[in-house]
């Protein structure tokens, strides 16, 4: 089997995640979809690392994970505070920033 299939899988997962971001209204689920997209990218990086025979791709994936962790912390905090004030986790309800 050619490892390039991992890349196809990554593309597929990324696309599914993107579609999820567009379709779902629950902010937490939207966030999970973003995590899914990040993971898909990580898979691609790891595969590239194997392809090129060096560890740089893995390093990038590692940093992605760290950034994702930071992002999750802040993002969930935002969701919690929005939920506390608006009693809703729907991203469509937070639509005041418009003309």
């Amino acid at each position: 089997m050619n490892p390039v299939y991992y890349l196809y899988l990554a593309a597929l997962l990324f696309t599914i995640g993107a579609a999820g971001v567009l379709i779902r209204r629950n902010a937490i689920v939207v966030f999970m979809c973003i995590e899914l997209m990040l993971n898909a990218c990580n898979l691609a990086f790891v595969t590239f690392s194997r392809m090129h025979g060096n560890l740089d791709g893995q390093i990038i994936a590692f940093f992605t994970m760290v950034v994702a962790a930071a992002e999750v912390v802040v993002g969930l905090a935002i969701i919690v505070s929005i939920f506390r004030t608006r009693h809703s986790a729907s991203v469509d309800d937070a639509s005041l920033m418009k003309l």
Binding site: P3, Y6, L9, I28, F31, M32, E35, N39, N42, L43, V46, T47, S49, R50, Q58, A61, F62, M65, A68, A69, V72, V73, L76
Partner: peptide, 27 residues
């Protein structure tokens, strides 16, 4: 598992411990 299969042993373990174990639990 795929990370492990691709030779990224460290990342595979981190994926389980940090992502699945910590981040998803936070979710």
């Amino acid at each position: 598992v795929f990370y492990l299969a691709n030779g990224a042993y460290f990342l595979g373990v981190v994926q389980v411990v940090v992502y699945t174990g910590a981040i998803m639990m936070l979710f």
